[in-house]
């Protein structure tokens, strides 16, 4: 860990690397900075909304067929019943996913990790940062959260987004990273 703590943003910085970070294991690695705990509820709300829409649509279709054909089509009912446990699981999933989310700022790159079953670790070297955005939707804003999006020129992955950062922190990070992007560009 770096001693240079005055550095903006107020995030843990890591000089290296190595085996300490190589923790693909489910255990939360201390080297990564965790997201704001509020993001769990944000994710749950998001999922809740989409599941509600889907389930309402199914019910609506069943209702329509009840009116037109006299009885609700059985597969619609089955789909509805089958979707309920899935919805429940999907609603609880963010609690799990949160534990595996992490952000790390190293000397020369920014790194994220996520994934409960399928693990992902991604990095963008500072010199490859094109521009950095913060984005915050209405629900996110009401919870005081923001998403940080780091753009590169890449073709397939192209950007790295970090959800669930407190707005102030996200903005500091955005400024810091775009500054680093500029200073490292001519490296």
């Amino acid at each position: 860990m770096n001693d240079d703590f005055q550095i903006n943003p107020p995030l843990r910085r890591i000089t290296y690397l190595g085996k300490d970070l190589a923790g693909f294991e489910p255990a939360v690695n201390r080297s990564f900075y965790t997201l704001d705990p509020g993001v769990r509820f944000l994710w749950m709300i998001g999922r809740g909304i989409s599941w509600t829409i889907l389930l309402c649509l199914l019910l609506f279709l069943a209702f329509i067929s009840k009116i037109t054909q006299g009885s609700a089509t059985t597969w619609l009912i089955r789909a509805f019943i089958g979707a309920l446990p899935l919805a429940a699981m999907s609603l609880v999933w963010p609690l799990l996913a949160y534990k595996h989310w992490g952000l790390a700022i190293r000397d020369h790159d920014v790194m994220i990790r996520y994934g409960v079953l399928f693990k992902r670790v991604m990095t963008v070297p500072f010199s490859r940062i094109q521009h950095v955005d913060t984005h915050s939707g209405p629900i996110e804003r009401s919870m005081g959260l923001s998403t940080l999006i780091i753009h590169t020129a890449g073709a397939q992955l192209s950007s790295l987004s970090v959800p669930g950062l407190p707005i102030e922190e996200a903005e500091q990070l955005r400024d810091y990273l775009s500054k680093m992007g500029h200073t490292h560009a001519n490296l």
Binding site: R120, T152, A153, S158
Partner: peptide, 9 residues
């Protein structure tokens, strides 16, 4: 290289 990703199933 613009960006790197490690994946693990």
């Amino acid at each position: 290289i613009q960006m790197l990703e490690l994946r693990q199933s």
